[in-house]
Design a protein around this nucleic acid. Structure first.
Lengths: 85, 85, 85, 85
DNA sequence: CGCTTAATATAGCCAC
DNA sequence: GTGGCTATATTAAGCG
């Protein structure tokens, strides 16, 4: 493979194609990241709490049962330590 | 704002809209992440070194001049420490 | 400064000192990271839920009032979206 | 285990011990992080390029042979793409 | 399948 | 005070 690169340039072309595909995809991905950031900025401007919304979005990614169970364990541990739940 | 949520549900609707926009954008972003991963998997199957390609892609993100300057300082320091450049 | 490195080696020695200080500190820091990992491993072996303990430790870093307020906002938002709190 | 917590408080005490160990270790770890930051601040004040020194420290973490090999592959790929090495 | 390592999300920090 | 950057913590993937 590596010798192909030095020899004929065939693999070099293949590598170039791969990299261009990656770069195009990453560009689109970064653009979406920018869009998301904009939405947060906008909702912040509308008076919402950004950190809370982030947490909310994260919570919604997990099935409710899992979340409930994790919460239950956490509260149990907090009680064991005498922290207010 | 927060009282609006409790009172009328108007802000609740607005919040819902924001969150749905975010979730849709994140979905698309995750899909692109998957596509990128596939490309790496494919080029790996073709015999390329994934770590090297990742580094290469990262390098290409920075303008060549910057990279050259940063490298120059780094090499200077490396020489000062007696490391092979 | 940079010319000093090339010229006299004085700054080179200074740079070397700085780097050695950093590396020594990072070594100690990494060792503590390993110790922490061991504790988690140990408590896992004793039947505790690692994720929950991590969350608990993180929670304890923040003052209780802050935590309560953040929770209040989050629950408010969840109610606005009709999610079970 | 979890029933022990509710029942007798024995596991609660054990959990408390674990958490205190973790918190003590994290405190020391954070202190070292602060020390490292100070060193960077100091070398910056002495005219060194912080980003370059960070990169240098990172480089030194990897064995020279590995670094050389990785560089070789990277340069091969860069040549294949017609980038200046 | 656990475990180590890399990718991502988050939070703190600094400079502007 | 805000936006970018660094560092950390969490999460997912790949590997043995």
């Amino acid at each position: 493979m590596t010798t192909d690169i030095a020899d004929s340039g065939v693999a070099a072309e293949e590598l170039k194609q791969f990299i261009e595909r990656i770069e195009r995809l990453e560009e689109e991905k970064a653009a979406l990241g920018g869009d998301i950031k904009e939405v947060y900025s906008e909702l912040k401007g509308r008076g919402f709490d950004v950190a809370a919304v982030r947490k909310l979005v994260a919570l919604r990614k997990k099935p409710p049962e899992e979340r409930a169970e994790a919460d239950a364990i956490l509260e149990l541990y907090m009680q064991a330590l005498g922290m207010q739940a």
